[in-house]
């Protein structure tokens, strides 16, 4: 169960969207988000809605994926919309319109992010980001370090969650109760998990540094990559189509 908690719920697959370069998907998502924010309701917003729904279908990750991960956010959208209806000062009809407008925009934005995360593995997303941010190196922005931190976090977060659960179980078997009524007591009990966790994490960090250095890691330097990102004609088509949709909404 713990094993499913990766960052970004990537669903492995082989759809057109899966095969696109992560950079074009990031660019596409940015266009969709910005476009949706600046779109006029309802026609333009509707065009964006149609676009993301088509993308959702193309992603072939299944409606369940979108529904499951959208569920908690749907509540947020509904509550926001509800207050909009309740508190705004316009006529009731207009209020509904405004609520729907807002809810729809939130939905489109979240949905487009879901398409990105569902079809792009975290690792390829990070290497895409590294490439896209690399111009920032010229102004001494630590792109390489940032990406290395992201890569290692992706690798180690599931381990920390496992460590946490394991230590908690061990402490429970020693009679420590994590469902204590008093908050102070409960906090104290959680410290008995936190301290061993810190010790283990420290050991992990020292070992990792040793292992990385032993494999000739030397900071940025002249690194190369096993998997080289390459734009294909499909990437240009993808950006072209989404950019085109945006241009149409601007022109409308």
């Amino acid at each position: 169960m713990v094993k499913n908690i990766g960052l970004g719920q990537y669903i492995p697959g082989n759809s057109i969207l899966h095969r696109l370069d992560p950079r074009s998907k990031v660019i596409g998502t940015v266009i969709l988000v910005v476009g949706t924010f600046t779109s006029a309701y309802p026609v333009e917003t509707g065009i964006f809605l149609g676009t993301v729904l088509i993308l959702g279908a193309l992603s072939q990750v299944g409606i369940r994926y979108y529904f499951d991960s959208l569920k908690p956010l749907l509540y947020l959208i509904l509550i926001t919309a509800f207050f909009q209806v309740l508190l705004a000062e316009e006529e009731l009809g207009q209020r509904f319109d405004a609520a729907l407008n807002l809810g729809l925009r939130l939905f489109i934005i979240i949905f487009s992010m879901q398409v990105l995360m569902g079809t792009t593995s975290p690792l390829s997303l990070t290497s895409g980001m590294e490439k896209m941010l690399s111009p920032l190196k010229r102004i001494k922005f630590p792109v390489h370090e940032l990406i290395m931190i992201m890569t290692i976090s992706l690798r180690f977060i599931p381990l920390y969650i496992e460590d946490w659960e394991r230590i908690k179980k061990a402490q429970m078997s020693r009679g420590i109760n994590f469902e204590e009524k008093s908050i102070i007591k409960r906090l104290k009990n959680y410290i008995s998990v936190l301290i061993p966790l810190l010790r283990i994490s420290f050991q992990r960090a020292v070992d990792l540094a040793t292992a990385m250095e032993s494999r000739c890691y030397q900071g940025e330097g002249e690194r190369s990559h096993l998997n080289v990102l390459k734009f294909t004609p499909y990437d240009f088509m993808y950006i072209g189509i989404i950019g085109g949709v945006w241009l149409i909404t601007i022109w409308l």
């Binding site: 494999r215 000739c216 890691y217 330097g221 190369s224 990559h225 096993l226």
Partner: peptide, 10 residues
């Protein structure tokens, strides 16, 4: 990882 650190060709 190690080979990437050495800048070896993909």
């Amino acid at each position: 990882f190690g080979l990437e650190n050495l800048g070896i060709k993909p």
